[in-house]
Write a protein that binds this DNA or RNA. Structure first.
Lengths: 365, 365
DNA sequence: TTGTACGCGTTATCAC
DNA sequence: GTGATAACGCGTACAA
């Protein structure tokens, strides 16, 4: 045994000269192997262990060490089941492999799909994802923003962020912020990945015009930047064609099935002769669907329902739903790529990444 | 200025006697405040800072320090926007606030609901959740299991775990393992939270008997312990009543909509006079639904479809679906509670936690 | 009541 | 090629 480990070695549990830890701890939770254990077993220094494992991980061809040494180290590491601690590594390198993803509601299909694709994309870059669900509550979002800081995450990715005081404080931080689907609020700088919602709204309006859906209503949520843009584009295009949507036919609903249902009930009790309904997103459309049924309206024949997002479940359970297909699965890679460009300080970092959308008409008239 | 910071202070960027970091780093990424910065500003030692912040966080009444000192420290911390690093803390205390949640597919409603509820429950215990999506791939699961180790998570929670070599290696570790919905494989020890699937299967069979659904088929996935149990209970109960399900009417389908559809198509092309279909879970049932439609069968009138889980979307988009309601939202708190008991070494730690289920008949015959 | 000093596990810089 | 050692940010035993 060489003596380059002596000092540390004396402090290790087996040779402790200090008061030993309570025995039940020793018995139930054996200490995890560290670089020292590997070094000891391979009879080399920790520096060598780190070097070998490092060039190994980076896929570099040859490091500055002999073939034999490398083998000894790798064998020892394997034998001990050694896995370098991210904690130690992060502390030393001041970099984390953790990315926080803050969403309003994972139970929403669209969120879930983006989460899945982001998670996979990050993984291919060697990053892990910490998922935080704000439950559509701005206060919870703020609590998260401050808590997440403590984890020193590589980046914060926010899906449909609320414009809150907490957000404005958090972005001051050096951590990069990526906003998804909903643009960063005015005055807040951060990157954006999403679709051109206004253009998509215009697109839907275009279709309405070809179908003569002039008796229509809008069920929206103006507090979401994304939805507001959709509606603006929609109304603008209709206006250009001389079609106006009276304010009594613009009704607000939170972006949930339940509220879509509730608000649609109100709307339908007032105006009966609607030919088409434009909803803030698919969730809302699902609720609207039931309201229409209960109002004795045959969906499609009497009234057409338009959603937004195109959740994958539509294909199977909502064949009556016309909607704008937003490529949820493309979001993950797009976000991850942008993120890597930012953290690696690439030369040209786009402020915005716009993804394509398309109108999905399931039952043409 | 007292001199108790001198040594560290000299090493801080502003007073560096070593080669300074490249200026662009300094400019773009100012160093985050640490205990030292707070100590310096408050004119106390780091020990005092830590103490004050600590008793504050623990909600203890009075710590061992003067009122004035506490105020000085808190002011300084607030002023600097100081947030203790989880990295440093975890490294020191050998405890993490991170729990890994490994799921087969977050895009599955049930997974998403459990994820949401778990995430909320963990949060109330001051824990964060790292979400890992295996994408129904056992190999990916194994890769995750070894990667997650590096994060030294407090616990691993696995929803519907695959029995893989990687799993058997991973559970050797000192990290507690919690299995959800699918029991730990034989020989693997870990805790379990879920429902009594066998009893639930029997329950469905019971209903089939009262409805005289003797011409029935089973679309299942025997590689999932949970589904297998459901089917066993179902078949057993039928057998007790003298009803047998011929093997030609037991068909396998992976637990996805697509495969449910595909396999149901095959099944229906063979046997036309089925009165009821028992599916492995709701996802499968959705696929089966379309297959029935395409086979010219009116769901409910001609053939009844039974699922399992009762995804929240059913209420709105699948009113034809009879299913076993599994309380997804109750899973999170149950898991979190069990987890806390384990990590805090409570006296009585249940090996299994069984949650209640109930049959949800949406369209009684 | 407060301050000093050490070590958690890692990487990186230096010297040999 | 290899080894000793200094940080990273934190909590805490011990000293004062």
């Amino acid at each position: 045994m060489s003596n380059h480990l002596s000092k540390r070695f004396l402090n290790s549990p087996a040779f402790s000269v200090r008061e030993p830890a309570p025995s039940y701890v020793q018995m139930s939770v054996p200490r995890r192997p560290t670089v020292f254990d590997v070094a000891q077993l391979a009879n080399v220094s920790i520096a060598t262990v780190s070097r070998v494992l490092h060039t190994q991980a980076r896929g570099e061809q040859r490091g500055r060490f002999s073939k034999e040494t490398a083998e000894k180290v790798l064998d020892a590491a394997r034998m001990l089941g050694y896995q370098p601690s991210e904690l130690g590594r992060s502390l030393r390198t001041a970099k984390t492999r953790l990315v926080a993803f803050l969403v309003p509601d994972v139970a929403n299909d669209f969120c879930a799909d983006v989460a899945v694709s982001l998670q996979a994309a990050l993984r291919s870059h060697g990053l892990a994802m910490m998922l935080c669900n704000a439950g559509e509550d701005p206060d919870v979002q703020d609590e998260y923003l401050s808590e997440i800081k403590a984890f020193r995450v590589t980046a914060m990715v926010m899906l449909a962020a609320f414009d809150t005081p907490g957000l404005r404080v958090a972005v001051q931080d050096s951590t990069p912020f990526l906003f998804v689907n909903r643009r960063p609020p005015k005055g807040v700088n951060g990157h954006f990945v999403g679709i051109d919602n206004r253009a998509a709204g215009r697109h839907v309006a275009e279709y309405f015009l070809t179908q003569k859906y002039t008796d229509c209503a809008i069920i929206h949520w103006p507090h979401s930047d994304a939805v507001r843009e959709r509606v603006v584009g929609f109304i603008d295009r209709l206006a250009e064609a001389g079609v106006a949507v009276p304010s009594g036919r613009r009704i607000e609903a939170r972006l949930t099935i339940e509220d879509g249902y509730r608000q649609a009930k109100k709307l339908l009790s007032r105006s009966k002769k609607l030919r088409a309904l434009f909803c803030g997103n698919d969730q809302v459309a699902y609720g609207v669907y039931r309201a229409c049924g209960e109002a004795g309206l045959r969906v499609h024949d009497d009234v057409a329902i338009f959603g937004f997002d195109d959740n994958h479940i539509n294909e199977w359970l909502a064949p009556w739903l016309n909607t704008v297909h937003v490529p949820a699965t493309a979001f993950g890679p797009a976000i991850a790529d942008l993120l890597v460009k930012i953290t690696e300080h690439h030369a040209h970092i786009p402020r915005e990444v716009l993804l394509p959308f398309e109108l999905n008409i399931r039952r043409p008239a």
